[in-house]
Nucleic acid binder design. Structure first.
Lengths: 157, 157
DNA sequence: TCTTGACTTAGAGTATACTCTAGGTTTTAC
DNA sequence: GTAAAACCTAGAGTATACTCTAAGTCAAGA
């Protein structure tokens, strides 16, 4: 029933290398893993859930020291449910900020793609400077305003 | 009209420290910046646009070596418009992948928040194990399936 | 029993992106 | 003219997250 998994079993199944697993252990992330009498790590079925949580937190961009804090709470059991809720709650906000930021970047990169396509037609990266003001696409003026704000240090990041 | 900006002017306006600007220069990102006879960097009005592009690419997660490649194309002028278009185009895909990934993480973190809120009511992190199967919320079964797949190495990331 | 392969630790090495120091030169302001 | 402030480079130091090596221990099959 409750079999054990060696570190290389776990590495193969999760895609986390054995080196990395040992490093995580050294950093205090895998304190839940049992050891045999001779000191060999024996991962149980249940260990895959916190292991998965580690991968999720990593992919959220959480640094290892913060993940350790979470794992400490995990080990303490039912008394820390609320605090763990708060950690995930903050993580949600954090994720949303990252998503918002990437969406902002997407808008700019999208503009750049459009602009380069236009410039390609004219074979001139500054083609719009030769156009009469009323023929310049509004997107270009908007982007130049961003650059202007960036230069003036008034860009609210 | 066309005034110059010192490295500390630029640092103050852009929020990039003078140390970092010099480091970027050393890494070949600021080859467009002119120097005075005595070797002092003189940023022009026009230099803020590529500088802004560097910050955008950084915030997209592009490593400095790749940004350097882009700046090389920038310096070559009109002949590289198409290649620069392609770089931004690829960056769009890359950004979308990052956004998708963060949205996936958001779903999981959202579930975790919900789960901890539930567990808090029961004061038991494993409360659902004591419930009859038909009373267990479907979200829990779905999540346990993810953990199962993770353990079996069949999680398609 | 012995050999092979997998495990262990400690610690060194790598990569990335800064961040700072030291020592020297240039510019600016009085 | 001179002192302070700002600039320069080279290179060392920091932080993060692995990644690997060395040297030794343990477990399983011939």
């Amino acid at each position: 029933m409750s079999r054990y998994y060696s570190i290389s079993d776990v590495a193969e199944r999760t895609g986390i290398s054995a080196y990395t697993l040992r490093y995580y252990d050294k950093e205090g992330l895998l304190t839940f893993v049992r050891r045999s009498e001779s000191g060999i790590r024996q991962f149980s079925e249940e260990d895959f859930e916190p292991l998965y949580t580690i991968t999720v937190l990593k992919r959220c961009g959480m640094p290892i020291k913060e993940i350790r804090r979470f794992m400490e709470l995990y080990l303490q059991g039912n008394d820390t449910i609320h605090e763990r809720y708060l950690m995930f709650s903050r993580q949600k906000e954090n994720l949303q900020k990252q998503i918002d930021e990437l969406n902002r970047m997407m808008k700019i990169v999208d503009y750049k793609c459009w602009y380069f396509k236009e410039a390609e037609k004219y074979k001139d990266i500054n083609y719009y400077k030769k156009l009469p003001a009323e023929e310049v696409d509004e997107r270009i003026n908007e982007f130049n305003q961003i650059i202007h704000d960036f230069r003036e240090g008034s860009l609210t990041e």
